[in-house]
Design a protein around this nucleic acid. Structure first.
Lengths: 140, 140
DNA sequence: CTCTCTGCAAAATTTTTGCACTGCT
DNA sequence: AGCAGTGCAAAAATTTTGCAGAGAG
């Protein structure tokens, strides 16, 4: 997994003027340790086991910060709640329309797309999100 | 605009077992007549002028149906509320991170991407959503 | 020691649901 | 006439906010 080490995360937090707290580390490490692209609620349930006083507010506040400093991304697959992903290397997402699972996809030839978007719209692209939907192997 | 004519929409509703009502026609025509990718709230405010008794519940129920029968798509740009789009021809979206406006993009070479996703994940892709983010011409 | 962060509860927002009444077909 | 659809209000679900006390630097 290409996520941040604890040391790198601490540095990133401090460099951006945020404090390092056990909650933020626990939230990040829980997220970095799964490839299930969990929602805030899923994270909360997992974290509660080891951190009985973990609260939703803390998760949402931490996520806001982690997204802002570029340690985490937020996924909008069209479900009612957002999902989170600690992998920040360039990749994309496929969701199974049957079971809802979200899989990672790598190495898509997207450079021409971004160029075409810039050319067509005049918008200087800062980042992009690609979502694919279909029936996964398990559900076929 | 490549949206449905009133006649086509009526047929599509009936073919899928839904009734044609003035509210559904008004909602669809309002959406088809703009390229602003409005939220439910924005649609509601516009529709209220001519239909003072239009309600939110009706908009959400109608949208559910219109999405299901393939007359409308829902956009998830990462904002708190969903946006809607009556254009069903293949196209993509760029959002300005400054003003929030959403622009349409056409003719992207995406075939290889979809093939790569199928090959890599084994998921048979049914559809996809591409979102690009950057600073638009107006805001530059 | 200061000032940010946490946890709780309450609030805000968006979307969904239940139900009596309306009105399309 | 029958039954789906509308509108209202209340409920549900997710996310945000305010504040007192705890804890990082």
């Amino acid at each position: 997994m290409t996520c941040l080490s604890r040391q790198e995360l601490c540095k990133k937090l401090r460099d951006n003027g945020y404090k390092v707290t056990p909650q933020r580390l626990a939230i990040y490490e829980e997220l970095a340790g799964t490839d299930s692209h969990p929602t805030a609620e899923a994270l909360f349930k997992k974290l509660q086991r080891n951190n009985p006083y973990m609260s939703f507010a803390t998760i949402y506040k931490a996520m806001g910060i982690l997204v802002k400093i570029g340690a985490v991304r937020m996924l909008n697959t069209g479900e009612t709640s957002s999902r989170y992903d600690a992998r920040m290397d360039e990749h994309y997402h496929v969701q199974c329309t049957c079971c809802g699972r979200v899989y990672d996809i790598f190495d898509l030839p997207t450079e021409k797309l971004t160029q075409a978007v810039t050319k067509q719209s005049g918008v200087k692209i800062q980042n992009s999100d690609f979502y694919f939907y279909g029936i996964c192997k398990n559900c076929q």
